[in-house]
């Protein structure tokens, strides 16, 4: 039912895995900066910045970070869908070429 049952990863699969790892690392860097930078480590300086009726760090800690988490998961799903398509196209090209 599924390809990729070969003994080891071929060149294309390795390319796919490296791309995947790079997406994950970027998204996790943003995750850490927003949650632990904006919400915790920089909470004191950022509490002097006004964001609508509350302080910026308060908003990040109580709402903003959750919106960012949603965006990160969404972006990952979209980018991986695109990567899956690229991979299939490469397979086709290999076959034709």
């Amino acid at each position: 039912m599924i390809v990729g049952q070969k003994k080891t990863l071929d060149e294309r699969q390795r390319w796919y895995w490296k791309k995947n790892i790079r997406f994950i690392l970027w998204l996790l860097v943003i995750w850490a900066i927003v949650a632990y930078g904006g919400g915790v480590l920089l909470a004191e300086p950022l509490s002097n910045v006004q964001f609508f009726g509350v302080s910026l760090s308060f908003w990040i800690a109580q709402q903003g970070s959750i919106l960012v988490f949603f965006l990160l998961i969404l972006i990952y799903a979209i980018r991986m869908d695109r990567l899956d398509k690229q991979y299939v196209q490469l397979l086709k090209a290999d076959k034709e070429g």
């Binding site: 990729g4 080891t8 990567l83 899956d84 991979y87 299939v88």
Partner: peptide
């Protein structure tokens, strides 16, 4: 492990 990491492609492509 390699298998878990490899992309999952539909039957028709395989």
């Amino acid at each position: 492990i390699e298998n878990v990491r490899a992309p999952e492609i539909d039957e028709d492509v395989s």
